[in-house]
Amino acid sequence: MNIVLDVLSWACLAGGGFFCVVGGIGLIRMPDFYTRMHAASVTETLGAGLILLGLMLQAGFTLVTAKLLLICLFIFLTSPAATHALAKAALLRGLQPLLTAMGDKPSKP
């Protein structure tokens, strides 16, 4: 039982780390702001969620798990809100997505 839990949590931690790095690479490699935002959200949801899940499996049923759940809730509540505000601000500011530069019609905010 213990070994199963350990293996599961290790898998979760490894997966989370992997997704975080993928998000970071995307943050560097993506061509414009909106796609970069997409890459960053990989880090903020999948990576963070998996890592926290792995930690929770390690911690067992204690206060620590409750705090981790709280952190999880926090991330899932705030980071989409922040990203939403960011995207809206960028669009209102007049930063066009790259697609429109390629000849599409500019989308209305």
Partner: peptide, 10 residues
């Protein structure tokens, strides 16, 4: 709206 609701929750 999103920000307001989130803030009210947080």
């Amino acid at each position: 709206l999103v920000l307001r609701v989130v803030a009210k929750l947080l």
